[in-house]
Computed example of a mutant assay.
Amino acid sequence: MSLEGLFPIYKWNFKSQSILSNLPEDEYAALHTHMQEQRYGKGEIIFRQGAVASGIFFIKKGKVKKYQVDQNGREQIIYVANAGELIGYHAILADERYPDSAATIEESIIAFIPKEDFMAIMERSSVLPRRLLKILSHEFTVLANSISVFAQRSVKERLAITLIVLREKFKEETAAGEDIMINISRSDLANMVGTGKENIVRFLTEFKSAGILTSHSKKICIKDIRQLIKVSGCGNV
């Protein structure tokens, strides 16, 4: 079921897939030439917050969480990136260290593009700078919206929003007619919502009793997306 007209998903998703799509052939070929592909197991670190930014990463397969860790060791997941998205480019463009960490949440294939090669291609490109500026502007809107939600919404509403967003991410790799299975740990879900794991378990149980979702092990299947959107308080249903 599409969310069009029901939920403003564009307010919650970055659009970095569009950075490399339909690039001029010579520019895409140059980027591809410098890609160094690597396989990652579930839970592997790609880069750490505060590390020197050595390049950008293109997710060819899998999903990656971007997160920050506070002084008490608590993790806050900022965003989950899908296949086709770029990560790590903020630090490269700002010539700063990575502002967050990135780790896989499932087995992934990720291509690394060294900083010098990416910057050289961007400097002679007529397309990449404009696209990056547009993407960064949209990401600012997404992050501002997320900050507003954390300040004004209840844990239950934030969980509903997070499940809706994750459903769209896992939908991309689900064959037509098959159930969309959200495969994420309860700990990661809690770190996305900004609450304790016990709250996540309690509200998932409540949603399950209401017929909104089913769950098996770590996998969650949304059965009544309209009702979940109502709980989120952000939709048009």
Rank of each mutant, 00 (worst) to 15 (best):
V142T: 07
F207S: 12
S16F: 03
G88R: 01
M1A: 09
S125Q: 09
I161P: 00
K223L: 15
Q38C: 11
D70W: 12
R202E: 09
Y28H: 11
V231P: 03
L213A: 04
V193A: 06
I9H: 06
H32Q: 14
T174G: 05
G235Q: 09
P114K: 05
K230C: 05
E116H: 07
S54H: 08
K197A: 07
A102L: 00
A151I: 11
I229F: 02
Y28W: 15
L31S: 07
K65Y: 00
V127F: 00
R167M: 14
A83E: 04
E198N: 13
I222E: 01
H138V: 08
S18G: 14
A210M: 04
K230F: 01
T195V: 10
N236F: 10
S16N: 02
E172W: 00
D95V: 07
E75M: 11
K11H: 14
E116L: 13
V193N: 01
L228E: 02
V193R: 03
S215N: 08
N82R: 01
F58R: 05
K219H: 10
S18Q: 12
I113A: 11
T104F: 02
Q71I: 15
G235F: 04
L128I: 14
I46Y: 03
K115D: 04
I87E: 00
A151P: 11
Q38I: 12
C221Y: 11
G233M: 09
G84Y: 00
V64T: 02
M181K: 15
T214D: 06
I105F: 06
Q71S: 15
C221V: 15
Q36K: 12
T162E: 03
R186L: 14
G88V: 07
L204H: 08
Y67E: 11
V80W: 01
S2D: 14
L228F: 10
L204V: 11
K11A: 11
M119Q: 10
D188E: 11
G84K: 01
A51Q: 06
K218R: 15
R153E: 08
A120R: 13
R153I: 08
G88F: 02
T33E: 15
I220V: 06
N82W: 00
T174Y: 02
S2M: 11
D95R: 06
E25H: 10
A175T: 10
S16K: 02
M181Y: 12
C234M: 14
I161V: 09
